[in-house]
Amino acid sequence: RLAERRALPGRARPVGSLVWMHGASVGESLSLVGLVEGMIARGFSVLVTTGTRSAADLIGARLPAGAVHQYMPLDAPRWVARFLDHWQPDLALVAESEIWPNTVVALHARAIPLLLVNGRMSEQSFAGWARAPRTAKALLARIAICLAQTRDDAERFVRLGAPRVSVAGNLKYDAAVQPADRQQVAYLGDMIGDRPVWVAASTHPGEDAAAAEAHAALKDRFPRLLTIVAPRHPYRGGDVAACATAHGLRSA
């Protein structure tokens, strides 16, 4: 599906009004599921794009009927134009902080409203944008509505030139609990029993070692301790297991 990154579509455009929603990775795309369902209930078809394979694998299996998934095209003018020519969205929603200049400009030129939902602007990102204030204002002024997670996020968007900003909270807290295999959950629960458990979630390289070191330091005091490491990218499972072995720990 690499061709989708060059805006060569892998699906036909649904008939009727279409909302395009984009979430870069797993967390952002899952936060959009409730909005996808709401739009479909209102009679829209929905196109969901992501930028990572892990998000594509996860969201592709969870989209309801009436929604399709594609990879986000790279932010090159020719490919953005090709993407919009094919999909012709009536509305675009982007999650958190995915502000791609050519995409923003192209949507505005075609009078397609762009909404930033679950908007996030960290102090570090704000400092980066603030070094190019004209560019920041030129882009953010083209966003029809910005729904920020917090007052601090909202203030930073306003200071950079976004004209219509509201605080709407974090969509991730509104998302429904994701489905799970009840038999598998029960099986794991029986295996764990009453052991003390701690979880290191969404780890990156280097953080696995910290988790292993913490477990090694605690195992004498808590001999039945179970540490669960959930790496940010699942393909790193083998690296995590090797890290545990290097610290003299058993892993599965």
Rank of each mutant, 00 (worst) to 15 (best):
D152A: 14
V197Y: 06
S45D: 12
A216P: 01
L32V: 03
S45P: 08
H215K: 00
S97H: 11
L249Q: 15
S25E: 05
R182G: 14
G10L: 08
V26G: 05
L32C: 00
M191K: 09
N170S: 09
G43E: 05
R131D: 11
A212R: 05
P77C: 04
A12E: 07
P231N: 03
V177G: 04
L30I: 06
I145Q: 11
G43R: 03
L58D: 01
E155L: 10
Q124M: 07
G128H: 08
L74S: 04
E96D: 14
L188S: 07
Q183V: 08
A55P: 08
A201H: 02
S251Y: 03
A76C: 05
V167E: 09
W87K: 04
G51D: 00
L8K: 14
R131K: 15
L226R: 04
F222A: 10
A209R: 07
L188V: 14
G193T: 06
T227L: 12
R221E: 07
T203M: 01
P234K: 04
V199W: 02
G237P: 01
L107I: 05
H108L: 02
A252V: 13
G66R: 08
L171F: 05
V48K: 01
D57L: 15
V19A: 14
V104T: 10
E123Q: 15
A7T: 13
